[in-house]
Every structure is written in C-alpha cells, then in structure tokens.
C-alpha cells in the first residue's frame, strides 16, 4: 500500500468525493472566452481548469512544414507550473509531448483539413489547475475551441476516462482514484458515428473489466458531448444578441 492510499474507495455506494460509480464530476464548458484567439473554450471539470485556444487556418511557419493537400493541425498540451501540488517545471516534458500527439491524432479524425491546404491550424491547451483527467478535459476543450473558430468538422470530440479503483469500475477518476487506483482508460469518440479516436490505458484490467470500463467511458463521452453542444449554442446566441 502506498503512503496516503485510502482503505476504501467506495463506501455505501458512494465514492470518496460523494459521486456514484457512473457519475461524472461537475462539468462546465464555455465557448468563446478569449478575445485574441480565433476560437476558444474554457472547461471546468471537477478540480480541473483548462483553457483551449485555436488559431487558424493561418500561414504556416516554418514554411517547409506546409502540406499541399491539407492544413497541418498542431496541438500543444501544456501544464502551468502552479497547476499541480508540486511545482511543474515549465515547458514541454515527455508526458506532455505524448499527450499533444494523441490529442492531435484524435482531432485530426474530425477536422476537414483538406479544405485548407498549405496552412496551419494551431490548438493550444493550457492546464491551469489539475485534478486528474486533464488530457480528456483538454481534448474536450480543444474541439469546442476549433468549432468556436468556425473550423469545419465532422463532429465534436468529447473525451472521458473510466477506470478501476478498489475493484470497482468507475467513471471519470479524480486525483486520489487516479493515483491509487488499478487502471485508467481515457477514451475520446466521434459521437455521430460512435467511432473511437483516442484510447489509452494503464493499469490492470481483465477482458470483462475492460469491456465494462470501455462502455462506461463511451457513455461518459456522450454526456460530455451534450455539454459541448450547449456551450457552443450559448456562445452563438450571445454573439447574435450582440450584433
């Protein structure tokens, strides 16, 4: 047992933060929150606070990265030094490089990049405060930011993790569950088709547990999807009123 590990993760059907096993943390999404970005989104998801900004399509630098057939989508996941308990050294590390890559690939599956050859579309994700599940919060925010920028897409990309803690399959792990739990399975989907565009796992799951967690994560994604759409509608309503 690791130091600080709770003896029980679920007491009387409730998790340590009071949630049921299949319940998301409180989720709030707002679109169009930044002035300078072409599109942006802010996500508060439990103790996670995440900003995403989209710039583009725009001229690409360095020029040799240009693709004559499609826009180059570039994603940057970054954690603020004060976003975690122990100060994180600023700048990209190995973890954020990997997350940037899987985030980009998840979003590439929906963005119509072929409409903007020779350009770049940049998406910046900044984790301001972290409580586990930041890659899912980041992807969720990023796809809203892309949509807010008016980039044509097949669909939004909601993401959500499921996992295993104290022998139970649960939705949307928060930090204690993530640190001491047995498995974490982040998933992102294309809701209209049900396809999976991001999937990672670490920990230990049997086939049955995996299938159960996978289904739960997909259900979680669908709930996130509703919030994403609401956020976009609200942003457009507001813009309509202002005009």
């Amino acid at each position: 047992m690791k130091a600080g590990e709770p003896e029980e993760f679920i007491v009387d059907g409730r998790r340590l933060d009071g949630r049921k096993v299949d319940e998301l943390r409180p989720l709030k999404i707002e679109a169009g929150v930044l002035k300078r970005a072409d599109g942006s989104a802010y996500v508060e998801w439990g103790g996670n606070k995440v900003l995403a900004a989209c710039y583009g399509p725009k001229e690409i630098h360095p020029r040799h990265e240009a693709n004559p057939k499609r826009a180059v989508l570039r994603t940057y996941y970054s954690m603020a030094p004060f976003s975690v308990y122990e100060r994180k050294r600023p700048g990209p590390d190995r973890r954020s490089m990997e997350i940037s890559k899987v985030t980009r690939q998840a979003l590439e599956s929906v963005v119509f990049t072929h409409l903007y050859p020779m350009t770049a579309i940049d998406v910046f994700i900044e984790i301001l405060q972290a409580q586990a599940g930041t890659r899912c919060a980041g992807i969720t925010a990023a796809s809203v930011a892309l949509a807010d920028a008016g980039i044509p897409m097949r669909d939004l990309v909601p993401a959500c993790a499921a996992g295993k803690v104290g022998g139970h399959i649960v939705l949307d792990l928060f930090d204690i569950e993530d640190n001491y739990g047995e498995a974490d399975l982040p998933v992102a989907i294309v809701p209209r088709t049900g396809e999976v565009c991001l999937m990672q796992m670490d920990g230990n799951l049997t086939q049955e547990e995996f299938e159960q967690a996978f289904e739960l994560a997909v259900k979680g994604c669908m709930q996130v999807y509703e919030k994403q759409k609401e956020a976009l509608k609200k942003a457009y309503e507001k813009r309509g009123e202002e005009q």
Binding site: R104, Q105, L185, G194, V196, C197, Q200, T206, Q207
Partner: peptide, 16 residues
C-alpha cells in the same frame, strides 16, 4: 492475459 497497457495511434478511428 490481463490488459496492462493500451495506446491508440494514427489519425483515423476504430469502431467499438
């Protein structure tokens, strides 16, 4: 035979 790691890659998708 338990699953201990997963990673999806590429810009395409899989069905469930």
């Amino acid at each position: 035979g338990e699953i201990v790691a997963m990673q999806k890659g590429g810009s395409g998708t899989f069905t469930r």
